[in-house]
Nucleic acid binder design. Sequence first.
DNA 1: TCCTGGGGATGACAGATGTCATACCCGCAC
DNA 2: GTGCGGGTATGACATCTGTCATCCCCAGGA
Lengths: 202, 202
Amino acid sequence: MIRVLLAEDQSMVREALATLLGLEEDIDVVAQVARGDEVVAAAREHAVDVALLDIEMPGLTGIDAAALLRKELPQVKVVIVTTFGRPGYLRRAMEQGADAFLVKDAPAAQLADAVRRVVLRGEKVIDPTLAAAALAEGADPLTARERDVLRAAADGAVNSEIARALHLSEGTVRNYLSTAIQKTRARNRSEAVRIAREKGWL
Amino acid sequence: MIRVLLAEDQSMVREALATLLGLEEDIDVVAQVARGDEVVAAAREHAVDVALLDIEMPGLTGIDAAALLRKELPQVKVVIVTTFGRPGYLRRAMEQGADAFLVKDAPAAQLADAVRRVVLRGEKVIDPTLAAAALAEGADPLTARERDVLRAAADGAVNSEIARALHLSEGTVRNYLSTAIQKTRARNRSEAVRIAREKGWL
DNA sequence: TCCTGGGGATGACAGATGTCATACCCGCAC
DNA sequence: GTGCGGGTATGACATCTGTCATCCCCAGGA
């Protein structure tokens, strides 16, 4: 019996997925959490074999939770289950030790299949198309600080506000944004944000 | 037996929800579609009692599909099931004749419950908190044209590009954006887009 | 030691954005 | 006929954004 932890912030979706998996004879969903920062404690408490992690969750992203699991409970397998198959997400997930990466566009049957493959056979499970795209895309070109500034600018913040929030001068904010705009080959901050998001860099 | 159509673009989520509902003795998911523009044909073909519609789908939004259903198959009940309980979404959904409005943050049990209430008892099902927020929010202040321009500006398009796309002069684009920025009480287009999206106006 | 990369800052400047005033058109309701 | 709302446009102008040059600091690797 494979013991599964499910981390997904939308209750309805999480419970539906738990129900789906619960119908499998060899799979038992023993824990469900709605926040990324609850993953490690729940995995430990319930002695799970594998954690199914959404990426965009409150408290901690699924990718960051995967990194924590790898450090604290390295025997636990990690399956990322996400809405967007963004190259940067895939790359970061695999870097942080994830064993599988699935998008919610995939047929539901792939979920139980992936769980069995990673737990019983120690396989890595990634859609070849996604893998190819991520490899072709290359690494995130933004530095940590550029990402900070771009993230801060994402929803309409003006430079003075970003400067205050990140303890920078306004000129430095403009520089970082300019660099981010160029690295993403965008024309302005809004487009840079969109591109960085699409690629999973933000 | 309540015959249900499920419209949701993410296969995994859709199939999990279908499985969940399929466990109910009185509910039968007889059709599933991944695109908004397939809703009416499927509802007609499968003679469904109720359509469960996600909002953000390719081809047609769930809200627009609801309007079409109301027109073409007025006996079919409509339950909107959405990620975001945005006031504008709720308002528009109810205006277009939806019978229920659920967010995916709600417990899964609410789904079957809502289905029974709208089909068997003709009730309207809305979370009172969401209803109160939508009523307090007031109507979308943007004109159709302002929404067009704001939507076009959403991901980094420059004014000249928007003008070309919408067959306007650049000055007119600036005017519409300026008005949209003021109506949303934003400081710039990016913030206006965020606010309009959060309220479900875009 | 030198070089590179990342972080940070200042200053000058061109171009894009946003505001406001003004004007015109059309359709609809009273 | 008048007024209102929505759509469209021009022009002037202030401010914000983005670019570029230049400089400084630190850490790490060759």
